[in-house]
């Protein structure tokens, strides 16, 4: 088969955003090498689920529907996917880099002894010639990700093992409907022949999953703060400006680690990827993990004490100075000039 397959996560009967983003990417990759796009949905009460995925260009949808498959548990989902991949031999398998995908994908890779790259920021096909053997490979998946604390960008390949597996965070790829009337084929997985009691070793006693409250991804204006903002109190200034402009507050990993704001606001490789029309980076030096998550913003303003901060290189405007001096001035001007 050697197709492109995407594992689709389900929460409350809905296919996750990140999965739809991966289907969009998967469709493009499949077209490039003239293969089919397949999707796998594992859960319970999945009647009609195809309506959510076919518009994204899915040619074959594998459905495993069983009461023991929802909510997500590592072992049964692993078992079903390992079985499916052994049978279908996909060329590429993509997972969301979520608490589900990052739990599941490594187990499958370990079982199939194949390569897996976490948190890719770009996936493209390319060729490769092995240095020693001069063996040539066509259309390998280049899995591109920042590494070593974001100081380098690494391109990872898996020449010999299949599937070529990768995880991608929500928001990194763009979601786009392929064709609203596209229809694919549905294949039902025989769950009972695969699942055994030992796969149910972990039992969920309680589960509280909230709908995501803060959604900075869809905000057109983001006022983002880094460690340089200095305190939770100074972040209040960012919130004030964001509210005034109708935007949201984002943050760098350092600011989240310092406890200034919640992780849901984190922008970058291990947070959310955003493409707003205005991104104001306050006290953010601009490590590549952060810039990977915001460098497609239409307009970037950097407020930083350090005129040599790396982020200034990608900013349209650089203001050298303190966040607590500058933001109040911006608020004052806006209030005076916009009624």
């Amino acid at each position: 088969m050697n197709n492109i397959v995407v594992y689709c996560e389900i929460e409350d009967g809905q296919v996750a955003e990140v999965s739809l983003e991966l289907l969009t990417k998967g469709r493009k990759l499949a077209n490039e090498i003239d293969r089919k796009l397949e999707a796998v949905v594992i859960g319970h009460n999945l009647n009609g689920i195809e309506e959510q995925v076919f518009p994204y260009g899915v040619d074959v949808l594998h459905v495993a529907d069983n009461s023991r498959l929802y909510p997500f548990l590592t072992l049964p989902h692993t078992e079903i996917l390992v079985n499916l991949f052994q049978k279908e031999k996909p060329d590429v398998a993509l997972f969301g880099a979520t608490s589900v995908g990052r739990d599941l994908a490594p187990r499958i890779a370990s079982s199939l002894k194949c390569g897996l790259t976490a948190d890719c920021t770009s996936l493209i096909f390319g060729d490769h010639t092995e240095n020693k053997t001069k063996k040539e490979y066509k259309n390998l998946l280049y899995q591109i990700r920042p590494a070593f604390g974001g100081n380098i960008i690494a391109t990872i390949i898996n020449p010999e093992t299949r599937p070529q597996m990768a995880t991608v965070r929500e928001g990194v790829m763009k979601k786009e409907v392929f064709n609203t009337s596209h229809k694919g084929e549905i294949k039902h997985i025989k769950v009972d022949t695969i699942l055994r009691d030992e796969h149910m070793a972990v039992e969920i006693l309680e589960r509280h999953i909230e709908k995501q409250k803060v959604n900075i991804k869809n905000s057109q204006i983001i006022i983002s703060g880094g460690y340089g903002v200095g305190s939770k109190e100074n972040f209040d200034l960012l919130f004030e400006l964001a509210e005034l402009l109708g935007g949201e507050v984002g943050a760098s990993r350092a600011a989240v680690d310092a406890g200034f704001v919640d992780h849901a606001r984190q922008v970058g490789q291990t947070g959310v990827t955003v493409r707003p029309k205005l991104y104001i980076a306050c006290g953010i030096s601009g490590a590549v993990q952060h810039t990977a998550g915001m460098n497609e913003s239409s307009k970037i303003i950097s407020i930083n004490n350090d005129p040599k901060a790396p982020i200034n290189q990608i900013a349209d405007f650089n203001i050298t100075g303190n966040v607590e001096d500058i933001i109040p001035k911006m608020i004052k001007f806006y209030k005076k000039n916009i009624k």
Partner: peptide, 10 residues
């Protein structure tokens, strides 16, 4: 199974 094809400095 994973090989580093290329490393670029940022």
């Amino acid at each position: 199974p994973t090989k580093v094809k290329k490393i670029e400095n940022v």
